[in-house]
Design a protein around this nucleic acid. Sequence first.
DNA 1: AAAATAAACAATAATGATTATTATCTAAAA
DNA 2: TTTTAGATAATAATCATTATTGTTTATTTT
Lengths: 133, 133
Amino acid sequence: MEEVFKKLKEKHIRLTPQRLAVYEALARENKHLTVEEIYGKIKKRFPAVSLATVYSILELYRKKGIAAEIRITFNRSCFEARTDSHHHFFCRECKKIYDVELRPCPALQAAQVDGHSIEELHGYFYGICRECR
Amino acid sequence: MEEVFKKLKEKHIRLTPQRLAVYEALARENKHLTVEEIYGKIKKRFPAVSLATVYSILELYRKKGIAAEIRITFNRSCFEARTDSHHHFFCRECKKIYDVELRPCPALQAAQVDGHSIEELHGYFYGICRECR
DNA sequence: AAAATAAACAATAATGATTATTATCTAAAA
DNA sequence: TTTTAGATAATAATCATTATTGTTTATTTT
């Protein structure tokens, strides 16, 4: 938490109430939330907040490495406060997203594949989760 | 090629000129094409074809396991004729998509992770390709 | 502290990919 | 041939995301 604010300060980014609220919404649950969900959570305390603002804050956080965007569902973005690299699982039954730690995932360590230099890796698993089967 | 038609026949799916054209567009290049690109290629021979038709044919093929959809770019779908499981690399510079064969990818073999049963896995790498650096 | 400047925000419109609808046409079945 | 179901074209609708614009708020300068 503290280091996030430090990071923002280093880059001369103002910590406004809206931005704080977005970050808290993400960090409190430590889950994958859609933009709409984040918007919903914030609106309780900041009725005047705009959806476009939430988008722009999330985009700012993404660029600064404070939040990560995942696209495991094809039709909308989710964001999470975790920034360390890991994979995800999507349950086709209950639609829940799980974090997946792939212990020895060679791809996560690798600096390149086929001569291409890797900056980022998204691993999306699809199936039925342990709760649903 | 032949086996694709067999597969369609088994499931009582008519092989229309439009459907044939979509399949050929995908198979000829063996690349990842956007819906728009496929539409463009087909339109030369079938000026009357509709974009909505291309969408519906691709959706049909996806469901039948004849084509695969990937969402490596966040804002639009790509389709490919390859149906065996493999990963992809997206070059942020030239925007090209490469196939990636991850020789020993434990995730591709695994039947489950954390107790969740896996039906499908998408691995998306992002970075700069060997041509661009 | 007041004025000037820059950044953040809200409201809203615009964009663009995808999906739904409906009428027409084609092909298979009776 | 008639009937029926499926496929297609044309087009409208949807919906997530992005762009725009005017206003407000905070920072910097004087």
